[in-house]
Design a protein around this nucleic acid. Sequence first.
DNA 1: GTTTAATCGAGACGGTACGTCAGGTCTTTAG
DNA 2: CTAAAGACCTGACGTACCGTCTCGATTAAAC
Lengths: 208, 208, 208, 208
Amino acid sequence: MTERRAPSTARRSERARVAILEAAYDLLLDEGFLAMTIEGIAAKAGVGKQTIYRWWPSKSAVVFDAALHAGEQAADSGGLPDTGDLEADLRLVLHAIVDELRDERRSAAQRTIMVESMHDDELAEKVVEHILRPQLELTKDRLRSAVRAGQLDRDTDIDTLPDALYGPIFYRWMLRTQPLTHAFADQILGTTLGVHKVNQRARQGESG
Amino acid sequence: MTERRAPSTARRSERARVAILEAAYDLLLDEGFLAMTIEGIAAKAGVGKQTIYRWWPSKSAVVFDAALHAGEQAADSGGLPDTGDLEADLRLVLHAIVDELRDERRSAAQRTIMVESMHDDELAEKVVEHILRPQLELTKDRLRSAVRAGQLDRDTDIDTLPDALYGPIFYRWMLRTQPLTHAFADQILGTTLGVHKVNQRARQGESG
Amino acid sequence: MTERRAPSTARRSERARVAILEAAYDLLLDEGFLAMTIEGIAAKAGVGKQTIYRWWPSKSAVVFDAALHAGEQAADSGGLPDTGDLEADLRLVLHAIVDELRDERRSAAQRTIMVESMHDDELAEKVVEHILRPQLELTKDRLRSAVRAGQLDRDTDIDTLPDALYGPIFYRWMLRTQPLTHAFADQILGTTLGVHKVNQRARQGESG
Amino acid sequence: MTERRAPSTARRSERARVAILEAAYDLLLDEGFLAMTIEGIAAKAGVGKQTIYRWWPSKSAVVFDAALHAGEQAADSGGLPDTGDLEADLRLVLHAIVDELRDERRSAAQRTIMVESMHDDELAEKVVEHILRPQLELTKDRLRSAVRAGQLDRDTDIDTLPDALYGPIFYRWMLRTQPLTHAFADQILGTTLGVHKVNQRARQGESG
DNA sequence: GTTTAATCGAGACGGTACGTCAGGTCTTTAG
DNA sequence: CTAAAGACCTGACGTACCGTCTCGATTAAAC
């Protein structure tokens, strides 16, 4: 993933690679990004420091790969569910996200990476490219499908809606101003889809 | 702000205190939180390292105070504007936030504080209490005023709406997936208020 | 002695200085120059590495000072003995040198210094100035005294004789081709003084 | 020369062997023993590190062989000249040695090897066996021949005389206290042979 | 004339020590 | 008594080499 200065990648020791990623992930969870050190990773992985420096340019890069390695979940989803009912499908997705983020153990690493990406442009780019962009694109695909199915206004801004959905959840997760719940996700969903929902608005119009 | 282990605070040199805070803020803008060092602050401020350690417990603490010192703006706002037109008032606020965050110099400190609060619970609490909570409370006040004025549904969830407004902006600012613009803020505002706006929905219902 | 890059020497910790020199000397005797490390000295002295690097530019420099510190004997001799009997006086000196060089513990430092001075011109100069030249000058003084006393030919080459005395001993010490003994020293002494001794040659002439 | 752990020596690549020795000698002259590295030799020779480690046990061993290879002069001499005039023959030998040692370029490597042999017992043994002992034995042979010819006392210590001859020259060469000249060699020779010369002493006796 | 097995260039590996940097504490000197 | 200056111990940094260990790809020998 990140072996950009890799000399060949052919002779590379898979054993060492995996040991490093797992040691890095453990240390990330146990000590946090700032406290962990390259020397610590090397020691825990039973690996020479140079073997880390040979394949990764920075601590950020190792940790990012470690997080990806820990959850090979990024590419597993072949897309968002599409049952025909947009709101139900999105609710499923948001609930899954909330569930994952509420598991403190699993989400600590994610949060750390997000945080570090704020002052590490290289890391930030990787986060956007490998984690956020794919998720956003899949979401947009689902929304376009909904437009085609007549469930959303034809003039809905497809680029903004995902931010409106994920932003508030991200906000509460990062800043912990209030608890992150399914109910909150539902409210965000309702609020966000509100103006754009064709049928509902029509029905509301009739009954109004 | 953070002088917890201060021995007396009485004999403290104001000259040194200000020099430290200003040096710290300059370095924060020039080098960023990670690159700057306590030694660097001391050198730039023409101060002994011990004079920093005597009054602050950590780099985070100095930088937080430096940011507060730089902009004594946190508490200046006596509340959100209330012209009677909720959407216009919120648009003003969101545009101001966007403007501040788009100014790299001004937003660097904010970003740093957010970042550091992630692995510094004490700092996190201060951020929430001194910066976020006040902003959220003022926003809620404005929303309640709108409900009273009949501009918003009576059953609008006042606790969720601010997250729906600020969350997406925070999301784009932190993750930099797409540029942060006034247009984006406007769309979020439109989407978010959409279902709750009394007049507009009524009008839409009539014309539907 | 070697604090060339010393910033001030005023604030210097005498405790640390002595601990370093003693640790260095111990390690020199126990492990030898090549095997010992700066980190090892620091650890044994209970000192930070930086405290060594602050005051000495190289391992050689530390070890040289350590050797000087161990035996503040370099300048102690107020001159060679002068009992009137040149051969007896020189025999005393050579035996003392042999004794010192045969004591592995005591000669290790000397050997190391000689070795290091080969690839460290600055050190070499110090060795010549502080150790060799004084010894040679004192020896020449004693020889001149013997010429005045009529024990040596008036045309004896005073500049060559010391090399003829010390050279062979140095040769065996360094190259270890054969053991270094008092008998060897005596033979060198006899051979070297042979042609120059006034009385003996005269007596030999009479008996020839 | 030193291929002690060589598995067969049969399949050995002569090209690689020579390239290694020449690279090593170049590096020895250019950087000195301490600064040069096995990796450097391998790189300069265009050879894998393992090819060095396969045939030599240590850097010392490679460098020693490299020096031998550079001057295949060690074993070329079939003995010291024996014209019947001991002093003239030895003068020839000493002048040749002085000439070689005065050539800084050629003698630098020799000096380095001598120096390193002080803290490298394995190297020391090789130096003694391959370079010094042969020279000393040849010298002793010549001296015994002189005894038989009646030019030297029958009780002359044959084991000491070579040290008395070579020691002072070695001393000045290594320590560089004074320049190394033919005149110096002549004086050493005169002093050393003085007491033992049969004819001269007899003549002196007659004239005394 | 092909096996076939050792050697070759290459270079990754687990390590040690390097010399530097900054952390946070302790000490000295001046005001 | 505080502040400046800065030395102190600590520990991580990123680099250079160590000596060992695979890798294919030549060789040169014995079949």
